Simulated scan of single mutants.
Amino acid sequence: MSGELSPQAAPSEQGYEGALRPSTLAEFVGQSKVRSQLGLLLDAATMRQHTPDHILLAGPPGLGKTTLSMIVAAELDKPLHQTSGPAIQHAGDLAAVLSALTPGEVLFVDEIHRMARSAEEMLYLAMEDFKVDIMVGKGAGATSVPLELAPFTLVGATTRAGLLPNPLRDRFGFTAHLEFYSDDELASVVRRAARLLDFGISEQGVEEIARRSRGTPRIANRLLRRVRDYSLVHETPGDTESVHAALALYDVDEHGLDRLDREVLRAVVERFSGGPVGLSTLAVSVGEEAETIEAVVEPFLVRAGLLTRTPRGRVATRLGWEHVGIVPPGAAGGAPALI
């Protein structure tokens, strides 16, 4: 396919995020296995006129966990109540949320692994028997009062499924593990978003954005928006040249690495002779928090084959050396390791 994509009606800027989210499983791009499994689960529940099993969505940020929760509610034609694990720090917080649910409502808890332990224990009974025990009073005179709940479907989302306690994880009837997207799938995401944004972009531009989006639709949509802004301000068409110029302006290279990614990789190669280097030392060398390096930067560098993690620390791979323009030590004609 070549040429420019024909634009359709565009959403307002205020409704940008919501407008780009697909509202049905049929519109959702990628995750074909998960879509099929989820579709079967919802169709069976609708045919039985029953509340679907609780659903756990696990995977890296930006792959569509929140969007899928909205689609579950839309497919069931039920309201959606959204909250997050960090917002539920006491059992009373969870009891207030659960008691307000209407029959069949979908409760979405983002980052569910960060929920307080006392709330998790209350959630066990709520998920299985649709009731909770409320403690009234204090000390020796405290009594437990059972509270019946309306049947509901819990959709939990987590980026770290391993942190969920087994009793909670086992109470989900369906667990979906979302995978990173292929370039072709991301290209479909970009095409759809471009139409909704009323932005004409060449097919070559679409493919370029897809290649630099790190397998993540959220990043693809963000890069598309930046390219659109560049084309608007500079009055250029959405061609490959504009895409290159816009992404260069925002420090996104041909492999999808941004400024911080390259700083971390260059620090390992140039300052620490390719490693191994400890996380704390690496974080100090680039002026960032260790948590940011570990949670934001490292996963992509490791997945791209530019960095490895060893018991002694982080080590740059041959591809990592080559990415910063230095021949790795030991290669034919290569330079000695940096000191």
Results as ranks from 00 to 15, higher is better:
199 F>I: 05
209 I>H: 01
185 E>K: 05
201 I>S: 01
186 L>D: 01
203 E>L: 06
212 R>V: 00
183 D>W: 07
184 D>G: 12
214 R>M: 14
214 R>F: 15
205 G>M: 04
215 G>W: 07
187 A>F: 09
214 R>W: 12
204 Q>M: 06
202 S>P: 04
188 S>Q: 14
187 A>K: 06
212 R>S: 03
191 R>W: 14
194 A>R: 06
197 L>G: 08
202 S>F: 07
212 R>M: 06
197 L>T: 07
215 G>K: 14
183 D>L: 13
201 I>T: 05
202 S>T: 05
208 E>G: 01
212 R>W: 08
210 A>K: 02
209 I>K: 01
190 V>L: 02
196 L>H: 14
193 A>D: 02
183 D>N: 08
197 L>I: 10
200 G>P: 02
213 S>F: 05
211 R>Q: 14
184 D>N: 11
196 L>T: 10
183 D>R: 07
211 R>P: 02
216 T>H: 12
203 E>F: 07
212 R>Q: 11
196 L>W: 12
204 Q>N: 14
200 G>Q: 06
190 V>A: 08
195 R>H: 11
191 R>E: 07
207 E>F: 03
201 I>L: 10
201 I>P: 00
198 D>W: 14
216 T>A: 14
201 I>R: 01
202 S>K: 03
213 S>V: 08
213 S>H: 09
189 V>P: 07
198 D>T: 12
212 R>T: 02
203 E>S: 13
198 D>G: 15
205 G>S: 06
204 Q>Y: 08
182 S>E: 07
200 G>H: 03
186 L>Q: 07
198 D>S: 15
182 S>G: 14
182 S>C: 12
210 A>S: 06
184 D>I: 13
206 V>Q: 00
